[in-house]
Design a protein around this nucleic acid. Structure first.
Lengths: 325, 325
DNA sequence: GTGAAAGCGCTAACAG
DNA sequence: CTGTTAGCGCTTTCAC
């Protein structure tokens, strides 16, 4: 309600002096500082962020763009980012945007319009090069965009190795895995390619099973699992993203196939849903918390004009023993 | 990059004229409009939201305060709110705040500092009356705050009735239910009170089982389920929030208790995790999407100075048959 | 140390 | 219909 002018008047000083004490910049005598602080207290004054931003040319806000906030992976990511950003005094704006819906425009607009100081984008490959005009800070999670934009991701190769090892130790001879052209399961791409390659090199056959999700929707996962089992293919193991594997578990159970004795299941991402499930799904776990923290730190560094040490941050994954492999 | 002045110059008109065409307010001749639009196009101009806000005294942003964005209920809520708000041209700022962490300050600050035009708060009871100075728009989800603040919630009584009916139909004689003093499972409070009351009135015994979660953490749910089964109490049914029930399923399985023949399980909330689980958990489902939409609409209405029809919006719940009851 | 003054980019009367 | 003139609330030289 009250503005810097009110404070200045009440403290019998000028606006600039008030500004000085607010921002702890420059020297102010102990005496006047007291007066100003009292006035601020009395008026319950808080600086108008819009005005500050207009003047300082920043908004104190970061946008986080994800395909779907309700997806376990992304909701955990958003949580982590938000927490870290809050520590650095930044607010988090969320944009739950499907790939197609002219996300492209958004990015530029938000940057251009000074709504946000930077963008953390997860699960989208956007062609920012077309808009070199917008030179705001950008960080990508799990997606390579270009040499100018730092990327942070889990170590998918390590993940593939770990998953492969679990399956091989369990004596799998023929493993099915979902290959999605999905909006959402972005990381599964490279993970899938790699596990295929690794398993082959170890003499294990693979059954790639194409699939196309459009949204994070239980039914789609269930259906694709059904299709896999109906396909006539034989396999003694399946590896895929959490939801797919949960769906496979259901399908296997329904068909009287016992897990893990007849069929091994390994999931990637290892979000909480694999832990709340009975039996617990054997998984390779993405360090979502760390990924978020890293992305947040990178954005903040960029905004502080710090040179980034590197443009690619690959974080180690871990495993969860579980009871399905 | 370019400002309204640049556009004005290039189009050989004044700032105000440019402003008029941007805001489609007032009359502008077809001719000058064209000129201005061309200039805008040429300069790739987008109005600075901060400046607009400073002038118009609004930010175009709404804050959504939830205890934990990664919780299935809240992430779904946030998603719904964000989508609806986006349609109305509002951005969504998320604040994942635990009850204790001086959330109180935040609210006021965000409103006072003009960072947001309104707040949708879910799962917190905040004493805004202390800060009557901040008269921004506020909507509460699932929590009564005071007569001035509209609330939207699921019909917990109906939910309790439905859950009770499921259990009674399944011949339960003695039902355990979790009573949480939780930060997060806010809605469970009134649901629990009611189901207790209803079951009793139908001659079914109940076993209230106290529990205190602090965060959305798988382990805590698992532990409380363990405790329940270890307590020595006998029961042939359990009702509680999704995660608790999933944990009970695990515990029952581990102890060789067969569900649903020996033990019936019914969960409330009915988020996607009950559907991804095998067997599907019999649940009463909260209309999270509608709740979010309603809350978003209420905030927008308030900002448009529309009189609200009522201060309490109770939305109907539904059931999901499932295989655990 | 502190104040005056200009300016950030836009909106909103009010003339003309 | 369009331009002039004030602000919105804060920051930031630059004198004093």
């Amino acid at each position: 309600m009250s503005s810097i002018n009110d404070v200045a008047k009440l403290a019998h000083v000028s606006k600039s002096t008030v500004s000085l004490v607010i921002n702890r910049s420059g020297y102010v005598s102990e005496e006047t500082r007291k007066k100003v602080e009292d006035a601020i207290e009395k008026l319950n004054y808080t600086p108008n962020r819009l005005a500050q931003g207009l003047s300082k040319k920043n908004s104190g806000q970061i946008a986080v763009v994800v395909p779907d906030v309700s997806h376990p992976y992304f909701s955990a990511l958003v949580k982590s980012i938000e927490q870290q950003l809050a520590r650095k005094e930044y607010m988090t704006i969320i944009c739950s945007a499907k790939e197609n819906e002219e996300t492209e425009r958004w990015y530029v607009e938000m940057l251009n319009r000074k709504i946000v100081d930077g963008i953390i984008t997860a699960g989208h490959t956007i062609d920012m090069s077309a808009y070199k005009s917008s030179i705001g800070a950008i960080v990508s999670v799990d997606r390579y965009i270009n040499e100018m934009i730092p990327i942070v991701m889990a170590d998918h190769r390590q993940a593939a190795e770990m998953a492969a090892e679990m399956l091989i130790k369990a004596q799998c001879r023929r493993v099915a895995h979902f290959v999605g052209s999905s909006d959402i399961e972005v990381q599964s791409h490279s993970f899938n390619e790699k596990i295929d390659e690794i398993l082959h090199s170890k003499g294990v056959e693979t059954v790639p099973f194409a699939i196309g999700y459009n949204s994070f929707n239980e039914d789609e996962y269930i259906n694709s699992a059904k299709n896999l089992f109906d396909s006539g293919e034989t396999f003694d193991g399946v590896v895929g993203v959490d939801s797919s594997i949960l769906a496979c578990y259901r399908e296997a159970t329904a068909r009287g196939i016992s897990v893990p004795s007849e069929l091994k299941l390994v999931s990637y991402d290892g979000t909480f849903i694999t832990r709340l499930h009975t039996p617990v799904i054997s998984s390779v776990i993405q360090p979502i918390g760390e990924i978020g923290k890293c992305a947040a730190d990178l954005i903040v560094s960029q905004l502080a004009h710090k040179k980034l040490k590197k443009m690619k941050y690959v974080l180690p994954v871990s495993t969860q023993k579980g009871e399905t492999c």
